[in-house]
């Protein structure tokens, strides 16, 4: 394989009815990297992923996945891609082993029995392999789904919100596994709503209303946002937050327990705007780098009207 890009698509556009869900989307993902796909609900993440693996046909645009044309060679793409759906989509009325065996047969996996055995062992489910998949908890279902997706040794993994509703420990294990796979040369594109997961990606792409609003490493995205943030610590930050609403120069105020993130696009204006509040007693003000979440909320601000 000569080409260095696992995904190389340009100007993908997809509409459902009159609603444009993905608008001129382009990305180039190098092999062996883990890319995060972020954006609010309905931003077109799932639709984009489905177009990449041949589940949806784009209205326009073109490109390749693993060197295969996404329009004409979807059969070849399907054989080499592992796609994990947002909702658990294996058979709840089949056992863990039966599910894996089914997948292995469909992909015509060599040494099927051995591969399935190994997968069950890696999952740590040897003793529960006869258990019905439907009786597994959310975290185990995700792990089973991931195991099933990589059974046929795909070269590209497309994961659609794989950790939604999964506890932190299970999420961390899941991500450790993803980085292990990436280390073996697998390319991963994963959509998520979790900021800590985004921070574990090599690159992130932020999508809203079908268009890319930001992309790059986490540091790049934060840097390019041009956002300035002050962190306020104190007893009753909620009251302070309410007072700072609709003050010119302050673009967003969010409460995180006992701290407050106050952000603005214009550093000087922000400093002027917060000056009267800084005189209040009992609060500690500190200039800080905005968090990824601050940046994303800031990016979404122009669309706020549309969402409500």
């Amino acid at each position: 394989m000569s080409e260095a890009l696992a995904i190389d698509v340009r100007d993908l556009t997809k509409s459902f009815g009159t609603r444009k869900v993905v608008d001129n989307f382009s990305i180039q993902v190098p092999r062996g990297q883990v890319w995060g796909f972020l954006g609010p609900n309905g931003s077109g993440k799932t639709t984009t992923i489905r177009m990449l693996c041949g589940l949806l046909v784009p209205d326009s645009g073109s490109g390749t996945c693993l060197g295969y044309d996404i329009l004409r060679e979807s059969a070849a793409i399907k054989r080499n891609v592992g796609y994990m759906t947002q909702k658990f989509s294996f058979y709840e009325d089949l056992s863990i082993r039966e599910n894996l065996d089914f997948v292995a047969r469909i992909y015509d996996v060599k040494d099927r029995r051995k591969v399935v055995d190994q997968a069950i062992e890696q999952l740590g489910l040897v003793r529960r392999q006869q258990q019905l998949a439907g009786t597994l908890s959310g975290g185990w279902k995700q792990r089973l789904a991931l195991a099933a997706c990589i059974l046929h040794r795909p070269r590209l993994l497309l994961l659609d919100e794989p950790t939604a509703g999964v506890d932190p420990q299970a999420r961390r294990d899941f991500w450790d596994e993803i980085h292990q796979l990436a280390a073996q040369g697998l390319t991963v594109l994963v959509s998520t709503h979790y900021m800590d997961e985004a921070e574990r990606c090599d690159r992130i792409v932020y999508l809203a209303y079908g268009t890319v609003l930001a992309r790059g490493t986490v540091a790049q995205v934060i840097g390019e946002s041009g956002l300035h943030t002050w962190i306020v610590e104190g007893e009753d930050v909620r009251a302070l937050a309410a007072d700072m609403h609709n003050v010119p120069g302050i673009d967003q105020v969010s409460v995180f327990g006992v701290t407050l993130h106050v952000s603005g696009k214009d550093a000087a204006a922000l400093e002027r705007a917060i000056a009267p509040f800084r005189t209040r007693a009992g609060f500690k003000w500190q200039k800080a780098t905005p968090s990824l979440e601050d940046v994303f909320i800031h990016l979404m601000a122009p669309f706020r009207e549309q969402t409500s």
């Binding site: 589940l55 059969a75 399907k78 759906t85 989509s89 997948v103 469909i106």
Partner: peptide, 13 residues
């Protein structure tokens, strides 16, 4: 209805 169709379609069948 159970959502397994998406997976089935994503496989080379």
């Amino acid at each position: 209805e159970r959502g397994t169709m998406e997976n089935l379609l994503a496989m080379p069948l």
